[in-house]
């Protein structure tokens, strides 16, 4: 089940706000894929992403009584995005306390490269990677991605274009 097939009627929303277990399970199955994509694209490691999904849904469960009725997937996506950005900030803070030789720093490149992902994706920053994944894997519109990430649609288009240009370079080189 995908979040796109999730039928959100008033009864389902009320059940969610009451923290009904059945409704919460339905929400989980519909949106786990999207949340996992956001987490994996930002955090870069499957195990970390799975842990994050668990924490994100727990956070969402607690916040359900305050849900104001916006689009469920957007609401959950925002929680996921903010949670993972917080995790990244914490990680970066930890990294900054260790001494790393200058030659080992890869500017403009992700600190958390995803195993088994092509280089043109790994070469992107976490944020760029999230945007490309949401666009090309999850099939979200730029408007929907803008709502999740808080970035302007023009900026998002440029990020995707940057990724496509990397692909073009690969083609040109071959």
């Amino acid at each position: 089940m995908s979040y796109r097939n999730l039928e959100v009627d008033s009864e389902f929303l009320l059940s969610l706000k009451r923290q009904d277990n059945k409704a919460f399970e339905t929400l989980f199955h519909a949106c786990a894929g999207l949340v996992f994509s956001i987490a994996l694209s930002l955090l870069g490691k499957r195990s970390a992403a799975e842990d994050a999904v668990q924490e994100i849904f727990f956070k969402a469960y607690r916040a359900l009584p305050d849900f104001k009725g916006e689009k469920l997937a957007s609401w959950l996506g925002k929680i996921a995005h903010n949670h993972c950005v917080d995790l990244l900030r914490q990680t970066n803070r930890e990294v900054s306390t260790t001494s790393v030789p200058v030659e080992d720093l890869h500017l403009h490149q992700s600190n958390s490269a995803v195993d088994e992902l092509p280089d043109f994706i790994n070469a992107l920053s976490e944020t760029e990677r999230e945007v490309v994944i949401l666009k090309k894997v999850e099939g979200l519109s730029y408007k929907e991605i803008s709502l999740l990430t808080g970035k302007k649609e023009g900026t998002l288009r440029n990020m995707v274009l940057k990724c496509l240009q990397s692909l073009r370079e690969i083609v040109d080189e071959s």
């Binding site: 786990a32 894929g33 996992f36 994509s37 994996l40 694209s41 799975e50 999904v53 995803v114 088994e116 992902l117 092509p118 994706i121 994944i133 090309k136 894997v137």
Partner: peptide, 10 residues
Amino acid sequence: FARLKQGFTL
């Protein structure tokens, strides 16, 4: 992107 979709499947 087909490969990516597989990689991002839970």
